Simulated assay, not measured.
Amino acid sequence: MNSDAAISCPPDVLDGSRALRLACETLDIEADALRAMSQRLDGAFSAVVQRILQLSGRVVVMGMGKSGHVGRKVAATLASTGTPAFFVHPAEASHGDLGMVTAGDLVLALSNSGETDELTGVLPAIKRQGIPLVAMTGGLQSTLAKHADWVLDTRVEREACPLNLAPTASTTAQLAMGDALAVALLDARGFGAEDFARSHPGGALGRRLLTHVRDVMRSGKDLPRVQPEASCVDLMREMSAKGLGCSAIVDAAGTLQGIFTDGDLRRCVEAGVDLRARSAADVMHPRPRTIAADMLAVAAARLMEEYGITSVLVVDAQQHLQGVVHIRDLMRAKVI
């Protein structure tokens, strides 16, 4: 067997302690690289943030190989936090995709060495168009750095790879610098949780911050309600028919008077109350928890959790009953 084959053959038994030691060393090396990069941050970073805020176009991110993979993530993070951005592959850019870059855009180019051929090959065209160029590189004297209007220094003392070859600490530095840009930009834009939710409508946060009570409440014929003079028998029938374990009590004008729940029924039975001789007004709870239709559905969830209830009645400013939200409705809408 030749030596190359012997090297590529995996060991029969993993040296767990060695693997753990290398893992810890990797994390330490990358953490040290980030701390050193943090100490080197200067006015160039602030200038880049300011220039991006002034853009009428988008941030166009470029990078090859591992830097390209990081670049795609940086572009996605910027776009999801309020800064329009997209990724263009440098090799494709020289074959027509450079047409995606237009006046008003800014190019953010990632390369650890700053000498990546596919990237340096499109730099003259970018400069001819007058497109601002930001270099994210460890090669401060590289071709990329010399063409750039601003340089974000992401150099590292060494890679975490034991051979000091595989991009590890350097790509971590690029990723962290991209996150730093995104955070600084979202703060400067006043980008809040609701803005984030609008760009993530399919996510849990989007559902929580974009779903209102009116979107999940039951109304019309699905809303359990009786008038105060209704008998308890009629009250029970309404509760059974609507299947929510409760019924609202409203007057002839639709104004909320109270609520009766399965819990109230149990308490009446335990107390020996003769329900056949009582009306809905006699047994109702006169101060139910309510919420407005334009409130976020998550607020209804908080009410249910705080008071240990499973339904919240929806009313308008005049206390007219508009609907009811049950815990199952919130679960179905994935608000909780």
Rank of each mutant, 00 (worst) to 15 (best):
M1V: 11
M1F: 14
S8V: 14
C9R: 13
D12L: 14
V13P: 01
C24G: 13
T26E: 03
I29Q: 10
I29F: 11
S38L: 14
S38K: 12
R40A: 11
L41M: 14
D42Q: 13
G43K: 05
S46L: 13
S46D: 15
A47M: 08
Q50S: 15
Q50P: 09
L53K: 08
L55I: 05
L55Y: 02
S56L: 00
G57I: 01
G57W: 00
M64N: 13
G65P: 08
K66P: 04
S67C: 11
S67D: 10
K73V: 01
V74H: 04
T77G: 05
S80F: 02
T81Y: 01
F87R: 00
F87L: 01
P90V: 04
A93F: 03
H95C: 12
H95Q: 10
D97K: 04
G99P: 02
V101N: 00
T102A: 10
A103P: 10
L106R: 02
S113N: 11
S113Q: 12
S113H: 10
E118W: 09
G121R: 06
G121Q: 00
P124L: 00
A125T: 02
I126Y: 01
K127P: 03
G130K: 09
T137D: 06
G138T: 12
G138M: 09
G138R: 06
Q141R: 12
S142E: 04
T143Y: 05
L144D: 03
A145L: 12
A148C: 05
W150R: 12
V151T: 09
L152N: 09
R158K: 15
P162F: 15
L163D: 10
L165H: 09
A166K: 12
T168V: 13
A169P: 13
S170M: 13
T172I: 15
Q174I: 12
A176N: 01
M177H: 00
D179S: 05
D179A: 06
L181S: 06
A184R: 11
F196N: 02
P201W: 01
L205P: 00
R207D: 02
D215A: 15
G220T: 07
K221D: 05
P224Q: 12
V226I: 14
P228K: 07
E229I: 12
C232Y: 02
C232E: 06
L235G: 07
M236A: 13
M236H: 08
M239F: 08
G243Q: 07
L244Q: 06
G245C: 06
S247P: 07
S247M: 10
G254E: 00
I259S: 09
F260T: 06
T261C: 04
R266A: 08
R267Y: 02
V269I: 14
A271F: 04
V273N: 00
D274Y: 11
L275K: 10
L275W: 04
R276N: 15
R276F: 15
R276A: 15
R278I: 02
R278Y: 00
S279M: 13
D282S: 07
D282N: 06
M284C: 07
A292V: 09
D294N: 12
L296C: 02
R302L: 04
M304D: 02
G308Y: 07
T310I: 07
S311E: 06
D316V: 08
Q318N: 11
Q322F: 05
V324K: 07
H326Y: 08
R328A: 11
V335D: 03
V335C: 05
